[in-house]
Design a protein around this nucleic acid. Structure first.
Lengths: 229, 229
DNA sequence: CGGTGGATTGACGGTTGTCAACTTGCGTGG
DNA sequence: CCACGCAAGTTGACAACCGTCAATCCACCG
């Protein structure tokens, strides 16, 4: 197994604060795992059996309600933590948006280890606090933003992370999500998402060279579409 | 100052896991504080300066956006924890819905104390994890539920906590929130909230003996209005 | 008894969801 | 290499829901 010291997310995952010898111990508990696009790692409603770190790829936290509609509660990316420690059931599924690699632990083994290693627990606490802040910011968006604002916010959000950040040229990037994924995330329908993208294209704010690609021609105009958020 | 051993939320706040002698030490750091209805304890955007526990009353976490609309992100009640430890800025204000009593600590003193007392940090972690689950559940509601469903869910939610829980008789309780507060919480307008309550009354599912009072006549029917959630 | 603020009701319009048709892109197999 | 088929995305028509604005009602208080 790969040593934690070689880990792709060595400096950013919650393990980063552990001293070398504890890291080796944790390493023996972990297991690297591939999750193919569309596969679920955790199921909504199941007892929480595993936790872990994302090494590569992107996954969504999602719930599906009785009426058949899905809602994505958040997206997790490399160095993010997955799962619900300390013996609760998982309120949501974790599903791969793209082929992903994760480093997983059995929940019970992780719980025990965390209790014995305060730096890890502290790292998890800080991360959970920022996750909570982020979730609440997202709530604000779902509650109060129009469809146009949501799409603009989302595009800028992705642009910040995925663009090949050259100095000024127009930002270009590939969406890691399908229209359906975007709709589930933004609390809209695919038709509404599609219409908003068309509108941005017609207004000359973006272009869409291919299905999944976006070019931002006028970032200021796009930011104006977010409704000062 | 009141000793923590006499505290109203002794068994439920995050301090409950501390041994007696640590509790005394924490006690010396804390300060009991009254917050009048409408007063803010923490301001959105400010550096996080204080944290604490709710002893009595009800407060809301709220953000106001540039366009002047407020959104309530959650409600905190006795034994809940308030504030953002570990040196971040507060993303939201904390405002009293009713006259409240809180037990506050300076954030920096609390941070230091928590680092030295693992049981407290662990309690805070568990609470933050459940807060995160709750926030995500609320997101689902804001994203996908209709106005009627939101009001029904809210009423049942409050009923569970505030009713004088006699065996079967119709549930009766006082709302701790104004219509505006409810609208801010549910991501609606006061008019829409009002109309939904009128509809429930016309359908014989509830009665409203006074402005703030609600009687649930037909709990099954009300649950049917939530859209299986 | 009037005033004030919260709550209700009504009329109306805009935004978004729904349903359906259509187009586009892409991979597969002949 | 082309043709086909399928899934993803786009577009249009329409309706429902909810927000907006305005008028009114009601409880509470001086």
């Amino acid at each position: 197994m790969n040593a934690c010291t070689q880990c792709a997310v060595r400096d950013k995952a919650i393990c980063h604060s552990l001293p070398e010898e504890s890291l080796e111990e944790l390493n023996r508990l972990g297991r690297h795992q591939i999750v193919k696009k569309g596969q679920a790692l955790v199921w909504q409603g199941d007892e929480s059996l595993l936790v872990g770190n994302v090494l590569e790829g992107a996954l969504k936290l999602s719930v599906s309600s009785a009426d058949g509609r899905d809602q994505t509660l958040g997206i997790v990316l490399p160095s993010d933590f997955i799962g619900r420690p300390f013996g609760a059931t998982s309120m949501h599924s974790v599903i791969a948006l793209t082929d992903s690699r994760v480093c997983t632990f059995s929940r019970s083994a992780f719980d025990t280890f965390a209790q014995d290693h305060q730096p890890l627990e502290h790292g998890l606490l800080e991360r959970t606090l920022t996750d909570l802040d982020r979730a609440r910011q997202w709530m604000m968006m779902l509650a109060r933003k129009s469809a146009g604002e949501r799409v603009a916010i989302f595009l800028l959000h992705i642009a910040k992370r995925h663009s090949s950040d050259k100095s000024d040229g127009p930002l270009r990037f590939e969406l890691p999500l399908s229209r359906q994924d975007m709709a589930d995330l933004l609390g809209l329908t695919i038709e509404t998402v599609s219409r908003q993208i068309t509108r941005l294209r017609d207004d000359g704010i973006i272009t869409t060279p291919s299905r999944r690609a976006i070019v931002i021609l006028d970032q200021d105009a796009l930011e104006a579409c977010t409704g000062e958020c």
